[in-house]
Amino acid sequence: MLTIEKLTKTFGGKTAVDSASISVDRPMMIGIIGRSGAGKSTLLRMLNRLTDHTSGAIRFEGREVTALRGAAKREWQADCAMIFQQFNLVPRMDVVSNVLHGTLNKRSTLATLFNLYPDADIHRAIDILDRLGIAEHAPKRAEALSGGQQQRVAIARALMQDPKIILADEPIASLDPMNAQIVMDALRRIHEEDGRTVIANLHTLDTARRYCDRVIGMLHGRIVFDGTPEQLTTGTARDIYGADASFSEEATSTQIDALTRAKVAPVHA
C-alpha cells in the first residue's frame, strides 16, 4: 500500500529526516515515537505533502506521491487526512461547519465562498459526529467545546474526506489522560472498523503499546526501531530516546492504561 524510500528532509544545514524507509503492506495502526526534535512531525508533513522532501520517494497504490502537483496533490491530501495537536478548527464557527470543511477539496470555489453544502453532506457530517459521540454539540461554536471534544471534531473533519490514510501529529499531547484515552479509542476503532491506516506521532510509550500494531522509533531524524509493541522493551525505548540507564518510562507515560476505559459511540462504516 504505502512505501517510503530513503525519504530525507534538510533545512539549511540541518537534516530533520535522514533516509527514512518504511513499507506498509496492509491497513494498520502505526505509532511513531521519539523525543522532541526527532523528526516525527516532519515525516508526517512530508507524507501529507505539507512539506516538500529533499530526496527520496513516497509511493501509494502505484502513485509516486512526491511527484504530484496541483489537483493531483490536492487529491492525495484528501486521501491522506491530517489531524493536528492543536486541532486547527475555526473557533467561532459551529461544529458541523468545521466538519464540513473536510469536503473543501471536492467543492467549487463558488460553493466555498458562500458556504453552501449539499444536504447529503450535512447529514453525513452529523452522522460522523454521532459516531464519535458528540452529535449533540453540532450547533455549538467549536471554541465552546473541551479539548478532547475539539479533537474529536478534528477527527470527524478528517473522516469527511473519506481518506485511505489518517495521519495524527501528537493528537493527545495537549489532552488530559481521560480525554487522551477517548481520542485514542476513537482512532483505533476507526482503523479496525473502516480498514483505514492510521499513523500517529505519540509521546507516550504506554499509548504506543496499547493501541498500535507497529511502533517506529526515531532519533536524530533516523528510524532506529521498527517492530511490534511487544518488542518495545524498556532497553529499546532507552535507545530510541538516546537516554542513559536512569531513563524511566514514567517520564513518557500518561498512565491512561490505569483508567477505566472511556466509552464512545459505536464506530461504523
Results as ranks from 00 to 15, higher is better:
97 S>F: 12
1 M>N: 10
94 D>Y: 11
180 A>P: 08
56 G>S: 06
205 L>M: 11
131 R>L: 11
87 F>W: 01
198 V>T: 01
132 L>H: 00
229 P>N: 04
91 P>A: 01
64 E>I: 06
86 Q>G: 10
188 R>P: 06
223 I>S: 06
27 P>I: 00
48 N>V: 08
62 G>A: 03
261 R>Y: 11
155 I>F: 05
34 G>R: 03
20 A>V: 12
99 V>Q: 02
146 S>H: 07
258 A>S: 15
3 T>A: 13
137 H>I: 09
111 A>W: 14
192 E>K: 11
25 D>T: 13
4 I>A: 03
189 R>A: 09
216 I>G: 04
16 A>T: 08
263 K>N: 14
159 L>W: 00
118 P>K: 07
202 L>D: 02
57 A>D: 15
43 L>K: 06
262 A>L: 12
35 R>S: 14
29 M>G: 02
121 D>I: 07
90 V>L: 12
27 P>Y: 07
179 N>F: 04
152 R>V: 00
253 S>P: 06
212 C>P: 00
193 E>K: 13
55 S>W: 10
3 T>E: 13
215 V>F: 04
14 K>A: 09
260 T>E: 14
156 A>F: 05
214 R>M: 02
46 M>C: 05
171 P>H: 04
174 S>P: 08
245 A>K: 15
142 A>E: 02
68 L>E: 11
158 A>Q: 06
75 E>T: 12
263 K>Q: 14
63 R>H: 13
233 T>F: 05
178 M>I: 14
45 R>C: 07
129 L>V: 02
163 P>C: 03
139 P>M: 04
42 T>Y: 01
142 A>C: 09
73 K>V: 05
151 Q>R: 01
96 V>S: 12
238 R>V: 08
188 R>H: 09
10 T>W: 10
191 H>D: 00
257 D>K: 15
154 A>G: 04
116 L>D: 08
261 R>W: 11
253 S>A: 13
49 R>W: 01
184 M>G: 03
6 K>Q: 15
208 A>G: 07
223 I>C: 05
209 R>E: 13
185 D>A: 07
211 Y>F: 10
109 T>E: 15
254 T>W: 13
204 T>K: 13
234 T>H: 15
139 P>N: 10
253 S>W: 06
226 D>N: 07
184 M>W: 03
229 P>D: 04
28 M>R: 09
152 R>K: 07
56 G>D: 06
120 A>S: 14
145 L>V: 05
62 G>I: 08
202 L>I: 06
120 A>K: 14
138 A>Q: 02
257 D>P: 13
198 V>N: 01
31 G>H: 04
7 L>Q: 03
142 A>R: 02
18 D>I: 07
83 I>N: 00
